[in-house]
């Protein structure tokens, strides 16, 4: 208890950076993921190719290597700190998984929905936005929830590049107090403070949307 009391500002700072990194990465990865999901289902072969290459690259390389790439290589050209490098890597890595999840969602929407919309006069973009994507996201919601929770936990790679997050601050506290066990229990609890309400919210959303239609 005294460990938590003595280091509370440190933990709180880490918690804040973890939360901030997670929120930024969630927004960016949703936008990129949806974009690359749509690229992959366009009739144009070149678009499918680009979408597929993107997904394969970021899905099949360890997150840590992507993070080091941004921190050690990209940062030489575009200066950035560990927090930025880690958050960008996390966004790209997660977006590849979200792209696959959203793509699967789009494909499971009956083809008649798109035909109905196009025949009704809507453009491809309007059909996607108003008809296909809302249904696709609803189908994809359980797996999206998984991705979001993974994202929060994966944000711990920020610790490797001095990203000031929860894991990083935990390492600092452990190194100064030598009480590794208690420290990481506290760190784990702070992660749960984010992930448990998130899973609860996603389950709730799933239930609500199920009843909505």
């Amino acid at each position: 208890m005294s460990l938590l009391q003595n280091n509370f500002p440190t933990f709180l700072q880490g918690f804040g950076y973890t939360l901030l990194s997670s929120i930024i990465a969630l927004i960016i990865s949703m936008i990129l993921g949806t974009f690359f999901a749509i690229l992959q289902i366009l009739p144009q072969k070149w678009a499918q190719k680009i979408g597929n290459v993107y997904v394969q690259v970021f899905r099949n390389i360890p997150l840590l290597i992507i993070t080091f790439f941004f921190f050690l290589v990209v940062a030489k050209v575009i200066p950035m700190n560990g927090f930025a490098a880690g958050t960008i890597a996390l966004s790209l890595y997660t977006s590849a998984f979200i792209a696959e999840t959203v793509r699967a969602g789009i494909l499971s929407v009956d083809n008649g929905q798109m035909e109905g919309a196009r025949a009704n006069g809507l453009s491809f973009g309007q059909s996607m936005r108003y008809i296909i994507l809302p249904q696709a996201f609803k189908i994809a919601l359980p797996s999206l929830g998984n991705q979001f929770i993974n994202l929060v936990k994966n944000s711990s790679i920020l610790a490797f590049v001095g990203g000031l997050d929860l894991m990083y601050q935990g390492n600092m506290v452990a190194a100064t107090t030598f009480d590794t066990f208690t420290t990481y229990i506290v760190v784990a609890i702070f992660y749960l403070v984010i992930t448990l309400p998130l899973s609860y919210y996603m389950q709730n959303l799933e239930r609500r949307l199920k009843h909505a239609a």
Partner: peptide, 29 residues
């Protein structure tokens, strides 16, 4: 397509919209 409507064998109503919204969406957009 604006001038030619189509009615399908399997209806293809927008599953995520109410009956009224199904009718109103295309004229609005």
């Amino acid at each position: 397509r604006k001038n030619v409507g189509m009615v399908f064998q399997h209806f293809n109503l927008y599953n995520n919209k109410s009956t009224l919204e199904n009718v109103m969406l295309a004229p609005r957009l």
